[in-house]
Simulated scan of single mutants.
Amino acid sequence: MTEPKTHTLEVPGAVLQYDVREGAGDGEPPLLMIGSPMDATGFVSLAARFPERTVVTYDPRGTGRSARTDATVPSPPIHADDLSRVIAAVGGGPVDVFASSGGAVNALALAAHHPGAVRTVVAHEPPLLTLLPDRERALAAVGHIRRVYERDGLGAGMACFIALTSIQGEIPADFAELPMPDPAAFGFPPGDDGSRDDPLLGQNLITCTHYEPDFEALRAAPARVVFGVGVESAGQLTYRAAVAAAERLGAEPVEFPGGHAGFLGGEYGVQGDPDGFAAVLRRVLGQG
């Protein structure tokens, strides 16, 4: 695999940056690795485990190097349109996609609304809170996090977010009244710097968690959709959402090593199991 080459792509409302790592060549289509709001820096370790494949990573609009050029808050369908343009720019589809978290939500929109762009989507723990039996409480908790962020800033908002995503099982109705952890416990500085431009809390939190996939379109699409879960995140929100989504398609989720970020190999200070993760991903992609 070669060193990544960075490209710029102007799209309506944004200027996207994406990277192409040319593989040794195995006759397979490009493999996109996408997150949201995680940008391309989160896939360095996993991409290195696929030297035979051409791997494409990118920064979603409003994140990392990809700047928004208008005030439109990006939704999963907008991200899907961006992804379809990136796919066209690297030679067209169908491609394979590994998608993490919010990126998995966007990949489902891509597969549903851009048939022919995707061969296989591996959607790892998409936060589709609309599919949960406790959806009203989960969505209310997300709304509370957004209000805390708007009122008190990044540290307080992230402490609430981490508290929510750490819950095992259904979300309590009184989540907003529960004591929240100290932001300093997670390395966030004290106080409020006044900024409200965080890609997660200010941009993706609501649009991503409130999205409802078009399962009818997904069933009709030519793409194969596989949902992944981390063995260490059993019972947590994104694990439960992935299981619920798989059930809607009449499938069983595939277990991957680690938790929600099990593919990381030191990025952001998180050490997952990229070797084990890549082995499962390679096996899943080979089943198509």
Rank of each mutant, 00 (worst) to 15 (best):
E3R: 12
E3V: 01
L9Y: 11
E10A: 15
D19M: 00
G23D: 12
D26N: 13
S36I: 08
P37C: 14
D39N: 14
T41N: 07
F43V: 01
S45V: 02
R49Q: 14
E52T: 13
R53I: 03
T54R: 04
V56W: 14
T63S: 14
T63Y: 01
G64Q: 07
G64I: 11
V73L: 13
D81P: 00
D82M: 04
L83M: 15
I87D: 08
I87L: 07
V90C: 08
P94H: 12
V97P: 06
S100V: 10
G102D: 11
V105K: 09
L108K: 01
A112C: 02
G116A: 08
A117I: 01
R119F: 01
V121S: 07
P126H: 05
P126F: 01
P127V: 04
P127A: 04
L129Y: 15
E136M: 06
H144K: 00
R147D: 14
Y149M: 08
A156V: 09
G157V: 10
C160P: 00
T165S: 09
T165C: 02
I167Y: 00
G169T: 04
G169V: 07
E170H: 10
F175K: 05
A176D: 15
P181H: 12
F186S: 06
P189I: 05
P190E: 09
G191F: 07
D192Y: 04
L201K: 04
G202Y: 12
Q203C: 02
T209G: 02
F215N: 04
L218N: 07
A220P: 08
A221M: 10
R224Q: 13
G230R: 02
A241R: 06
A242D: 05
V243A: 15
A244C: 12
A251E: 13
V254F: 01
E255W: 15
G258D: 11
A261S: 12
A261E: 09
V270T: 15
G272N: 13
P274H: 12
G276K: 10
R283L: 07
R283D: 14
G286R: 10
